[in-house]
Design a protein around this nucleic acid. Structure first.
Lengths: 109, 109
DNA sequence: CTCGTCTCTTTCCATAGTGGAAACTAGCCG
DNA sequence: CGGCTAGTTTCCACTATGGAAAGAGACGAG
């Protein structure tokens, strides 16, 4: 099981464990849809504690998938989050990998 | 953030961490598609060590998602795996949850 | 009957991931 | 200055995960 295994078993290319973690998947999905979102909004939307969200964002930034922008709203500094180009690609690649795993949606359903 | 949070944040109903784990997701997808599959075939298809596959199968059985059937092929006892009804439902529910998270596939792509 | 093989299963172990709580930091207001 | 808000980081306990190796059950060979 070596040379041909790549031909035989399901491909995992694009599968990204950094993104796959449930909360990070939700974060990426939200940012992908929103384009850019405020930290607090993400936190509320996903119902995460600030510390947990902050840590996941750190992981995503370390991977180069997310970047921050600081801006003032209501006299207060807030952090805006968005996917980098690389993050968007990785996210889309991960979705493609998931689709490859689960197969095409059954049209009969 | 309590009563209305269920209305606000993304729904996670159906999201099943037991199934979400990468290798278990692949196992469930394979069994869902195959109906029933031999342990060895699953192992080869997914390129997993016997011990790892066995442990994941145990987890899925403990959850009531998979059942085994022992049968002889080529003079040797082999284990056949399949999703239970409950497992199939949980798997489909998880896929639905994933779709709810990532949103509808972009037709423009 | 005993031995070796094949097919899983279980145990042991080391490592990494995860979240909650709380302490900490930075900017702004009064 | 003290207090408040918005994030960040640290501390901690717990769970998950995989690899390697030992076990266990069934079967054929001799």
């Amino acid at each position: 099981m070596s040379a041909e295994s790549a031909e035989i078993h399901d491909r995992l290319e694009g599968f990204d464990t950094t993104i796959h973690a449930p909360n990070r998947l939700r974060i990426c999905a939200l940012l992908d849809a929103a384009g850019e979102a405020e930290f607090g909004l993400v936190q509320k939307r996903l119902d995460l504690s600030a510390s947990v969200l902050s840590k996941h964002v750190t992981v995503l930034m370390d991977a180069g998938y997310v970047e921050q922008r600081k801006a003032v709203r209501d006299t207060r500094q807030r952090v805006w989050l968005r996917l980098t180009r690389r993050g968007r690609d990785a996210y889309q690649g991960h979705l493609a990998a998931l689709r490859a795993i689960v197969g095409p949606p059954d049209p009969a359903l």
